[in-house]
Amino acid sequence: MPPIIEVSDLTKEFTRPDVRPGRFAGTRSLFTRARKVTTAVDGISFQIGEGELIGFLGPNGAGKSTTIKMLTGILVPTSGTVTVAGQVPWRDRRRNARSIGAVFGQRTQLWYDLPLRDSFEIIRDLYSMDPATYRTRLGEFTEILDLDEFIDTPVRSLSLGQRMRGDLVAAMLYAPPILYLDEPTVGLDVVAKGKIREFVAEINAGRRTTVILTTHDMDDVERLCRRVVIIDHGKILYEGDVEMLKAQYVTSRDIVVHCTDFDATTITSPFAQVVSADAFKATLRFDPERTAVPKVVHDLTSRYPITDLSVLEPDLEDVIRQLYTERTPNAR
């Protein structure tokens, strides 16, 4: 997969007056010459291949949105280089605008007082789309995202989920090869989230659109992304496959055992450690590197009259939490 986005040593610093708290802090801020430099993104490098769907993760204030804003051309980097489809986003801003679509969960790109359809028509005209392509594409998107019932409603009257669906269509109407999604499912109900995930999966698989997704919703990541870039304090903590990440960080697995004919608190195993138990349910933890799952299962089922048993898959959210907590010192 040839890279469509190349980021090298990218840094963004923000400077503001350094005002010490205390008396007349507000007045002193007018005259102080001292400056405080905050490094939001600290020399990160990565590549994204054409047609990839990549998760860009990190806690609040990690530098995700700042990075996305540099990739889209909204912010000018302090140092380092970015090329997106062969262009420097902030320098070739207009050309870059034609190769990217962007949805920022918190802010709409639509015309607030006009019906959704009018916003789409303005975008059609701005991007010089031919009417036939516009009609076909809008028809397809309307079907996937169920826009029919609110396409003629003014944007200001739409629910968050409806507006977000409208924003997605607006970002993809002119078929840009790259789509940035900054928390597109934040605050949405399960139905709206499902529709958006279906749409994103379709444009990535069916149209080979490269998608860069920032989200705090690990369900989004598990369902959509194969690869993730995790950043914190402006540095990359991890870059790679989601499954590899789980394997690397999940050193134990949990088995949950249910029973009705005996007290689950009496359960023990030479291969696993009981982490919690009550009369009807016990959770045991084991190291899958040392003991294979079937061995633990066989041991338990052969010794106890168990009514139900399940092996929990590693939870990405726990992995990410662990990663943030450790905040690896050798982050790059």
Binding site: K69, T72, G73, A97, R98, R107, L126, Y127
Partner: peptide, 10 residues
Amino acid sequence: EVDRYLLRPA
């Protein structure tokens, strides 16, 4: 809002 302006080809 300027974010939006920077994302359009105008």
